[in-house]
Write a protein that binds this DNA or RNA. Structure first.
Lengths: 152, 152
DNA sequence: CCAAATTCTGCGAACGATTTGCAATGAACT
DNA sequence: AGTTCATTGCAAATCGTTCGCAGAATTTGG
């Protein structure tokens, strides 16, 4: 994953990555943008915009700004969008040397989320792409079930 | 609304399935419900509620009724919901001896949809469930790419 | 360090999808 | 046919998300 040389290096890396990427697009480094990254870093789980909003110091930033910032960060590849099928988008911070592609196992009862390492076999995906003559094929995959807690 | 008779038609099967399932729940067989099944049968593709609505003879049925009927049919297992990540639910008729579980390959450019036979390996899914002590694990899986037409 | 040039933000309105309250309508059973 | 209870139509309400715009903030050039 990331370097663990310094305790606070994650934040530092994200910040500099943010800065350099923003600079390259004549975008500005603002409080809200940094704050959102901060929240995402502190919560290694997919968060909704509203959750980010309420995690932020109260009057710090408008909900609309979060939507806009998240879009920007997503476009810059620093944040990845996930869809658990409940009509609300969730976002996770993408690691420095990571494309953010992974999946989750979600409890349909209490919404607990576990990150999953397994992925759809690349071999089969390639076969699907070839068979249908599609290019640039990716996938979205999420698992749902009942978590240990909710089984009792 | 109803029309020609086909000796071994799916339509008939769906209708009787609808009737028996509805009866068991003191639900009623109504025009809208039959009509929606009709539309779904005629279009072997995931349809949005709005698409079903416009496929229906103009004043035949309210959009809200479609939402309600689709919910019912989904709960009865006769219709399956799919999510292509564009914020609009799509629905497909489930075959008589079929649980409706399958996946799609969607063109991110023109929205063409191809049905996919491949599924996430059951073995791995079971392993994921066991490892995390989850029960009743399923998955949602959709593929996205650029279709042959849109590659030119 | 200042001022101009642009990008951002807050706020409220607008939107699209979906849901809901309620009175009127329509199936099903006797 | 009449009663009962589910269902429908219609409009209004919700929810997540986007947009327009004027003012605020950041970056750049001097």
């Amino acid at each position: 994953m990331k370097s663990h040389a310094h305790p606070h290096s994650h934040k530092r890396q994200e910040m500099s990555a943010l800065k350099s990427q923003l600079r390259g697009q004549s975008r500005k480094i603002t409080g809200p943008r940094a704050a959102i990254l901060e929240i995402l870093r502190a919560h290694p789980h997919p968060l909704t915009n509203k959750e980010i909003f309420s995690a932020l110091p109260k009057g710090d930033c408008d909900l609309a700004t979060i939507y806009r910032s998240i879009h920007l960060l997503e476009k810059m590849g620093m944040v990845k969008r996930f869809d658990f099928g409940d009509g609300t988008a969730r976002f996770e911070l993408v690691g420095e040397n990571d494309d953010g592609h992974h999946h989750h196992l979600v409890c349909t009862n209490c919404s607990e989320v576990v990150e999953i390492e397994e992925c759809f076999p690349e071999k089969i995906e390639k076969r699907i792409a070839a068979k249908n003559k599609f290019k640039a094929v990716t996938h979205k995959l999420e698992f749902f079930g009942i978590c240990p807690e909710c089984q009792r």
